[in-house]
Design a protein around this nucleic acid. Structure first.
Lengths: 315, 315
DNA sequence: CTTAAATATGTTACCGATAACATCAGAGAT
DNA sequence: ATCTCTGATGTTATCGGTAACATATTTAAG
């Protein structure tokens, strides 16, 4: 490995000048800078992050804390990790997966936390190191998420455009922020069109949504679209409609919200919001690293939703 | 953070003595050792891995190189990463995910490579740092894998014990070592029982196996069990039998080999070999770290297969 | 009872970077 | 022409460890 000293010798300067070229280039004359750059190129110099870390007493470790149970069959966290790790590796940081339990074991430079609930806010706010939450929240903590409200708003809008005349919202029975946002996206669309909102909430299990549709079939008129808060619920609704002999998408529409692998084996595939978790994870990592470097909040990062067309809305 | 010097002061010794207590305890008298241990406990001392790494010019990075395309819907690699990362984190190493393309970017202390093919052997053997292959091979490279041969051997044995009289092997059309091993496990069982081996090979897609069963239904006698090289193929066989009206497990048996999430939604579930990828990944990490520390091969690690009973063999 | 060898502990230098301070040269002021 | 002052560059100390060498203390041998 070539070091600062090697470069310094080659460029005929002191190692401090080389260090400055890297960290404070404005404090070095262009002439010397060129010499140093040249030497760095010729020697293929890459700074030793370990030595740097020793000086700034940093750990180069970012902890990823997943506060909900991991369903390893879902690629969700795999993608999130992949995305975060991609950015971190680029900056020679490493990702450490921790649970609430072993959260405090070992030092680190910052945190990514996902699956946060209200009860977690208190201890998270007390953390001394930069934090970024994966998933929206209303407690003033910086986060990365899809624009949930815009997502259901757009899907509801699309459903109306396709001629469905009644919009029923099937939501998740939870107090989490993303659910409020998804509901309000639906509500806004419905209000703008002067329609009557119809909301139902269930735990996020397909069979509950399926049962609901099945049980209330007589009250469900033709030409209704179901705006669901998750793909799981949407798949349930889809099954319920099919079991009652309803036609999708001719008679009934269904939309979901990405987050579940099962959609890949559903038929027809749900029209839903496509979230690129990898990309979001990657951005999440960048945001956190910026926060660490600058020592100040970089704000939240909200991704605009993109509709993924399945076969559950008329085309 | 407390340092060596803090501990040294508290114990009234030089920092070198403290360092020795950690790395060469036999070179320090018991008396001093007790003092030092006491001080370390009182100060909750944890060695700074970064400083250590600077001294031994190590990076504390292990690269995980996945040579096949990642199917992010499969929890396989998620589990592998989780397993490796678990061990590495314990030893304050970090895991860096690389592809063949960016393999050489950045230094590291060792490699875990998976999805290796024959053409990869050459460059892998040239690597200067310790390597461990995830997945068996016959090129003398240390690896971690399930005992593939024992797996099919046991499944074939079980099928015979359950009274199936004919065993058809449905394998993967590939030259990879694990496939040879799975075939030979089947063959050995068949030879021991003086039966006639029947082997067929397909690409690892369920519909190919399904088509095969469907097309050859007239040649498939009642009381046959299919020993398949993968769950994917087993699911295909299962579907083929069902489409032809065959009864599983009464008339026909099917066994797979773990590796596919789809089995979780198959019905009935395939009787297969259960591989704990997390555990194997974890062992893989330990093996590699030992290799790095000792600077010599730790040999391969072969996990004995465990049968996971589904509903595709008579009980 | 010396003296050499073995053992236990301390001192120094170093890993590769950076901050803080020291030095030096040239620009501008008097 | 001399004296600041400023900006560019070099020197030293430091981060937290470890190896190599130096020194002090025992132990064993003759």
């Amino acid at each position: 490995m070539t070091t600062l000293v090697d470069v310094a010798k080659k460029a005929n300067v002191s190692k401090m000048t080389v260090s400055r070229v890297i960290n404070h280039p404005d404090k070095v004359t262009d002439e010397l800078k060129q010499l140093v750059y040249q030497a760095m190129r010729e020697l293929d110099y890459h700074p030793n992050m370990i030595a740097k870390a020793l000086v700034d007493k940093s750990t180069r470790i970012i902890k990823l804390c997943i506060l909900e149970d991991i369903d390893t069959t879902e690629p969700y966290y795999m993608n999130l990790m992949l995305g975060i790790a991609k950015t971190l590796d680029l900056h020679q940081y490493s990702l450490q997966l921790v649970t609430r339990k072993n959260f405090d074991i070992g030092n680190c430079d910052g945190y990514v936390i996902t699956g946060m609930r209200e009860q977690d806010v208190e201890w998270i706010k007390k953390l001394k190191k930069p934090v970024i939450i994966f998933g929206e929240n209303r407690y003033g903590l910086d986060y990365v998420d899809t624009n949930n409200k815009a997502g259901t708003y757009l899907l509801a809008q699309l459903a109306l455009k396709k001629g469905y005349e009644r919009l029923i919202y099937v939501g998740i029975d939870s107090k989490e922020s993303f659910e409020y946002s998804r509901e309000s996206g639906y509500l806004q669309q419905v209000q703008e069109k002067r329609m009557v909102p119809e909301l139902h909430r269930f735990e996020n299990h397909s069979h509950l949504a399926e049962q609901f549709v099945y049980d209330n079939w007589n009250k469900i008129t033709q030409n209704t679209a179901f705006i669901c808060a998750s793909d799981r619920l949407a798949i349930g609704v889809e099954r319920g409609i099919v079991r009652r002999g309803g036609k999708i998408p001719e008679g009934f529409g269904v939309t979901g919200f990405d987050g579940v692998f099962l959609n890949q084996v559903a038929s027809p595939k749900i029209t839903t919001i496509k979230q690129s978790i990898i990309e979001m994870g990657s951005a999440c990592g960048e945001n956190l690293l910026d926060k660490i470097d600058s020592n100040q909040s970089q704000g939240s990062l909200i991704f605009e939703p993109k509709i993924s067309l399945g076969g559950t809305l008329r085309s």
